[in-house]
Amino acid sequence: MAEKSNAPRRKSRREFLRKLGTTGAVSIAGTSLLFAGSKTGNSDKTPGSKVKMLDQNNRLVEADVSQVSPVSVKIDAGYLNKKGRKGLPGRKFVMVVDLARCRNARKCMKACQGAHQLRPEQHHINVLEMYDEENGASYFMPKPCQHCDNPNCVTVCPVDATFKREDGIVLIDNERCIGCRFCIAACPYSARTFNWAEPKDAEKYKDVPYDMELNVPQKKGTVTKCAFSADRLREGKLPYCVSACPNGVYYFGDENEDLVTNGTTRETVRLSKLLKQNASYTLMPELGTKPRVYYLPPRRS
């Protein structure tokens, strides 16, 4: 195996990734406070200081600290499962990948693998070097799950283990998955990967309750794939890959708002204008899968 030969050189980096992965899991483990405001820690309880929290419609709102009492919700598997299948009402998530900005930094891949307990060869997002023209220059293309509106992978699933939510995200319930790998065969974008062996650090994640939106802990013999970081979206944060990019490749947002936010520059722009002004396209539209990930061409005119 080619991988083995350069293993020592990459060890330290892996060690780091492993640590990152653990922190991701620990923060969701056990009990956690429902409103995001509690995260800032030092917010005192004197009237007048504000906290940010999600209201019933999952909109981020500010409220006075004196008006909310921190409700500690036991995050058990049942709660996570129900929440994971529901989705965020009134949202339609989209991603725009600006290929002209991609410099193959691969921070997105690292952040993703760290957050989702993935082995180095498992990719929820994979940066590919593409050669569209034999004589043309190559370019780099990050390829996450396209979260299609007509997802063939979901069509073929025999047990409803993978499903589409009302906010457009295609998720996997790895407690339901029987490991038939039909979805892997059906996906034309090769977006799915399988846990052939015991997942990375399985022992550490043993007692962590399963969070469908994070798809952690991973389980042996089940399929895993990009979830648009649904766990982060619920907190009003951008996906792991989007916020890790140093080059401003990713825009992410809600189609209903017609706004997308760049993960690096934090610049928020109109989705419709961004797509129109930059000759956007989707991957293999001829297959009729209707992807929710748009690409802006690799060269600026």
Binding site: L60, R91, G236, E257, L259, E267, T268, V269
Partner: peptide
């Protein structure tokens, strides 16, 4: 600004 889910649109 318009407050979007992830950012402020000026």
């Amino acid at each position: 600004f318009v407050v979007g889910m992830f950012g402020k649109f000026p």
